[in-house]
Design a protein around this nucleic acid. Sequence first.
DNA 1: ACAACATATCACCAATCGGTGATAAAAATA
DNA 2: TATTTTTATCACCGATTGGTGATATGTTGT
Lengths: 207, 207
Amino acid sequence: MEQKKEVKQLRDKEKSKQKFLDAVEKILHSKGFSGLKVNDIARTAGLDKKLMYTYFGGRDQLIDEYIRSQDFWSNVKNEPGDPIADDGGKMFSKAMLLSQFDYVFKNKEFQKILLWGLLENRKSLKKLADDREENGAMLFESITDPHFKENAKRYRAIIALLISGIYYLDIYATTNDCTFCGLDLKTAEGRSEIEEALSFLIDKTYE
Amino acid sequence: MEQKKEVKQLRDKEKSKQKFLDAVEKILHSKGFSGLKVNDIARTAGLDKKLMYTYFGGRDQLIDEYIRSQDFWSNVKNEPGDPIADDGGKMFSKAMLLSQFDYVFKNKEFQKILLWGLLENRKSLKKLADDREENGAMLFESITDPHFKENAKRYRAIIALLISGIYYLDIYATTNDCTFCGLDLKTAEGRSEIEEALSFLIDKTYE
DNA sequence: ACAACATATCACCAATCGGTGATAAAAATA
DNA sequence: TATTTTTATCACCGATTGGTGATATGTTGT
């Protein structure tokens, strides 16, 4: 009789693996990657650290698997059915920047991952960066490059600056109480100033 | 007879303190702040770690003193004798952004300090951020705010985005081999694209 | 019921961490 | 020269780090 695993398992490999992945996320959220010690991860997962080695091969592989399990670029991916306005990507760029500004501010784990990418050269982080590039390439090559023609690279540089600025400001606002250029990035007022600036700069770029 | 300390001292408190401060810089440059362990600092300084405690009080106070000893904003400070063109701060803003883009790229220690500011809330780092704000306030309040009037805050937001973008891109270029938005920030070509974009955006902002 | 296997825990290891009391040695003072 | 003070080293501590072999216990198949 195949009992179809409906009975409660006291020992479940998959559930235990998930506990480790959840522990990584929890620690990443609360302490950042410097808190991702072997013993702490195991304690947070409520399991013995030995299992981390038997299931993942070690702390690093566990972390790699966590990063792979996340889809941080889901919010910038262009929906296949979504039609893109015939404006050279103006509206799409605006929406993407504003969406990223909000998403990164709210997603503390992603902030930590971005920070990580500035500190280490971990392979799984490299893969994440490649994903970002691949996603961006779609927008650039098919839409904005043809629109801006000889100025295509300048448009890419502008987007690079704005995206980077968004990342930095969002992370800065999370870890610091201080203002930046006199703006308080934690308040709705400060943030809407940035949003207006983003919109303004894109408008000016398409003039 | 006061011998005026001209003889070579085998034991010199000030020189030893400086050795510790130099060790902090060296480690910060090579390994980043995660490498600033008590034992490593002492080994790099070539002295016993006990001296770190007797002279500075501990690792943290040593690091604080190192940060205080640096003047990372010297390159953006407006020289008192330097006249500012009567263009609402346009040229000054441009020059400041381009100067920062180059300075941060070359100064790896400053990169590490900036990163540190995104990770911790150390008091001495807070002081550094306050210095930045104070420096900026001079430009904003006396020059650009009067020029942009009701749009003063938008200008601040634009500068905040561009400065942040510069920081992020420079740090990213240092730690990663990957491109950003298809631009290679390590090559002269890629960097001049960013410089042109900065100049372009400031021009458009002043239109 | 029994064996075989998967799952999980425990005790322990060597290396490293931050930190300190005792002491040696150089320099200043007498 | 003798004494005191400053400068520096050494040996050691408890806590924490990443990592592993031995073992116990739940689960599955015969």
